[in-house]
Amino acid sequence: MRVVIAEDSVLLREGLAGLLTRFGFEVVAAVGDAAALVAAVREHRPDLTVTDVRMPPGFTDEGLRAAVALRAADPDLAVVALSQYVQHSYAGELLASGQGRAIGYLLKDHIADVAEFVDKLRRVAEGGTVVDPEVVRQLMQRGRDPLGRLSAREREVLALIAEGHSNAAIARILILTEAGVGKHIGSVLTKLHLPVSDDTNRRVLAVLTYLRGQQ
């Protein structure tokens, strides 16, 4: 799997490249700013792009802007944005691009759990959606009455849906049968008046949109 990495900190960039190489990715380019990222993606057409949100020259959201622009040109481009903090405005903008397919928004903290991090990258590269658990936790915290009607287990299921997990993955994490998970999911979506859909990505977007509207 061919990857382009954009990260302005040399140490972290080299570290990420080493990590991904070790797990069998082919790092075709590792660059330090947004302009180089755009150029590298156009040149290599990678299977996955991993970019820092904050990069030179302005150190605000250059990486994210570049990612959104690249996805506007090519909605199938798989992108994972890495951020030091949860910034809901940025996360929302990125996740909304390309109907939520092949997109990830992760805190840099989660690079530390290397195996899980690599697993998340693979899921995005395969067209999945990955939302940082911290984003979901914050979104669920501001929720109001409808969320209060969910059972504890249903809330767990909702969080995992929002993070982009498939039914099978949720079943594995919660140690349930897939049929049991399917029942929970149906119940959650019904209680929140959301359309019941088997498409994981659509489901993530619907749940996130719902949670974001809950303030």
Binding site: L11, L12, G15, Q84, D109, I111, A112, V114
Partner: peptide, 21 residues
């Protein structure tokens, strides 16, 4: 702090995660 300390710490933690494997 963001440009130096945080990036180094992420990198360090990642290396520890790799070593653990």
């Amino acid at each position: 702090l963001h440009d130096v300390a945080q990036q180094r710490l992420v990198s360090l933690t990642m290396q520890l995660g790799l070593a653990k494997l």
